[in-house]
Nucleic acid binder design. Structure first.
Lengths: 243, 243
DNA sequence: ACTTTTTTAAATGTCTGACAAATGGAAAAC
DNA sequence: GTTTTCCATTTGTCAGACATTTAAAAAAGT
């Protein structure tokens, strides 16, 4: 039961926490410069290497960046959606692979979230979003494509759909769900026949989105979900039989 | 030295990247022990402080943990959903505050995502999930509650709804969207009247979920969304007029 | 032979001091 | 007034040392 009485964390972790809190609370504002490493070391009564370890922790979370030179130092980062994507995707990918989330579970989540974007996207999608989707569909129909390239194009297609909703928060959240599935999708070999089916479904979705038809878009996504799961089930079954 | 790319990153960043790639690629497996700091320093031909900074970067992302002592060292973490929640929430919160995302945008995303959970949750929610929701509704109806406590209970209610979908990937993604909104919600003062309305809407959603009525659940969420946005608009308008 | 205690070695955590490299601004030269 | 040179500041890196923790080996006791 002696699980862990608030075990004294490392000094560098404590300092990182203190600075992180200051950023979150707004005591340190965006683009503001932190005290120099020497000053921080003095303030916290630790050595400079310890301060540096704390700063590296924060840099790893994109909370600060450092700059060398006379007017250099550590600056509070503006956490942009674009920058946060990468972290979000890395974390989501690892979560899926390390926890052995089944393909079905990940797939279910992904399409549930995508369907959540459908109403907004069919309302707000720009011609640009449609053009991107059409272009990706065209690419997916080309014969010489590797499975990896096909999956990458698939991700691009769905990102265009999601971005069409015009809500950066949605795009951010969906980035994790959609892109993190790519490694799982890459485990699948797509036959010419299954690619044909997917391209047809993609076309149906793009058409529905162009017509601003929410119901049709949603149904298209659902059809794509069941088709994707069917293909995956087939691939996994064949693989299991071979082993 | 051959390492003269246009933008030579910090050595510690390079090393962190190399190890991170090894983890993502599976060359380093979960619970596997990394070489000691001295060995790593030797392998990468850098000093131990540099290696340590790299390891701290990875520790900040929960990719590794370190243990002191004879059989200690750095171990590859199993990234659990629970652990990832905290990071996800911190990042989402900062994203919202630093990028001045409007209340409406965040609210729209949140309820769109929640509606995505409705079909699954009405199908799979357990009596336990329902009980949690009822308990939170009961708490929300009590008079002496602070605004913060009311918001916290609101979050707990919605998390139960999301968890009811029985999909950890969904729960993870939603945690960011739902909990990151709490600071925004906390800026709102809830009148007794508006609390009453929200409690009624929550009750309606719980009832619909108990009856496994997808349409009713979805409509309840939509009603709650527009009510929330209406309350927020009122509060912000009053605040703007006063200033 | 088995259990308990002690020792020991390995590893991380931290500190000190130093030098290298980058960089912006001030001082000097033109 | 413009350009060049110099310099102080700050981060990046290194080397070595000591402290602390911890598990396993060694020793002692039963």
């Amino acid at each position: 039961m002696e699980n862990a009485p608030p075990r004294p964390a490392d000094l560098s972790a404590q300092i990182a926490s203190a600075i992180r809190d200051a950023i979150v609370d707004g005591r340190l504002r965006v683009e503001e410069r932190l005290p120099s490493e020497a000053e921080l070391a003095d303030q916290f009564s630790v050595s400079r290497p310890t301060v540096r370890e704390a700063l590296k922790r924060l840099a790893a979370q994109s909370l600060i960046r450092t700059q060398r030179g006379a007017a250099g130092g550590a600056f509070v980062n503006r956490l942009s959606f674009e920058n946060a994507y990468a972290q979000q995707i890395t974390t989501s990918t690892l979560l899926l692979s390390m926890n052995a989330v089944s393909f079905d579970t990940a797939c279910e989540a992904r399409f549930a979230l995508e369907r959540a974007c459908a109403p907004l996207s069919s309302q707000r999608r720009s011609p640009d979003h449609l053009a991107t989707m059409r272009a990706e569909i065209h690419r997916q129909a080309q014969p010489g494509l590797t499975d990896e390239a096909f999956c990458a194009s698939d991700v691009a297609f769905h990102r265009a759909l999601v971005d069409g909703a015009g809500n950066p928060v949605l795009s951010y959240q969906l980035a994790g769900a959609v892109e993190a599935m790519q490694p799982l999708m890459n485990m699948i070999t797509f036959t010419a026949r299954s690619r044909e089916t997917i391209v047809a479904l993609h076309t149906g979705i793009a058409d529905a989105l162009e017509a601003r038809d929410v119901v049709e878009t949603t149904q298209g996504l659902s059809a794509l979900e069941s088709e994707t799961r069917k293909i995956a089930a087939g691939v996994f079954a064949a693989r299991a039989a071979r082993d």
